[in-house]
Computed example of a mutant assay.
Amino acid sequence: MPPFFIWTEFKTMQLKTIHKERYRNRLNRIIIASILALAGISLGSSTLLIQLFSAPGAGNFWLNFTGVVLGCLVVGTALKRLKSHPYFFEVAYIWDLKHELNLIQRKLKAIQIAADRLEPEALTILAFSYAGSRLIWQLDDNTLVLSELNKADNALQQKIADAGLRISAEDYRRQLLEKF
């Protein structure tokens, strides 16, 4: 399995190895536990709210809705707090990577224009975007358009080599996006 990038506290990256099977197992367990907790908390709190505040024959839509909102808040807060636990390491990293790639995607048109002008920051961002996307697609078994990604990455690497630049995805920092 190829190495991938890990965020540290200061949004820098180190090369690490991720185990696809462990990632998938933990992701599935986290999803199932979240769904069960959300259902249990939502139903339990809705039932309690109805018992406490509902009149016979009254509509309970808003009490049920409040129960679901409470469930979402509890599960969301728990996931946020547990995110730094070692068990969540791979899953939390992929969540963060997807967020980072989303930030890049929002500015992709300007980044690609700058990359055509051989601006090192844009080339670094694209290199990181391609490496990150490849990792996510491989981990999620989403390989339908992987060949297109590889072509785009190969073209980028050729452009970098032809220009005689030394660009690496490892040099990516979120601050590079501020230019675009």
Rank of each mutant, 00 (worst) to 15 (best):
M1T: 13
H99E: 11
E9S: 08
A115L: 11
T12V: 02
T8W: 04
I30S: 11
N60R: 09
R117V: 03
R29S: 07
T8C: 12
S34R: 00
H85P: 01
V74Q: 07
L146W: 05
L126T: 04
L149I: 13
L139R: 09
A155C: 08
I6Q: 13
D140Y: 06
W62C: 10
A39V: 15
E90S: 15
L108D: 01
W62K: 00
S133H: 03
I50L: 09
L126Q: 05
V74L: 14
Q112D: 11
A110M: 06
N154G: 15
L36V: 11
H19E: 15
V91Q: 06
E170K: 04
E178G: 12
L43V: 08
Q14D: 06
T124A: 07
E119M: 11
V68W: 06
V68R: 04
D171N: 13
R134A: 12
R81V: 03
R29N: 11
V145N: 13
L38M: 05
T124W: 08
S45F: 02
L123M: 12
K98Q: 13
L139D: 07
R26G: 12
K159I: 13
Q175Y: 03
R26D: 08
Y87G: 10
G164H: 04
Y172H: 02
L36H: 03
S45E: 02
L118N: 04
A110T: 02
Q112N: 11
E170L: 15
A58K: 01
T66I: 08
A37D: 04
R22N: 15
N154A: 15
A114C: 07
F128M: 05
T77C: 07
A39S: 12
N142K: 06
R117C: 01
F128C: 06
Q14C: 01
D153Y: 05
I35N: 10
L49V: 09
I113V: 14
A55C: 06
S54P: 01
I41S: 11
D116Y: 02
H85M: 03
K16Y: 02
W95Y: 08
H85T: 01
L15K: 00
G132I: 07
I35S: 10
L97W: 05
V75T: 03
L36Q: 03
K16C: 04
I104L: 03
G44F: 08
V74R: 10
T66A: 15
S45I: 10
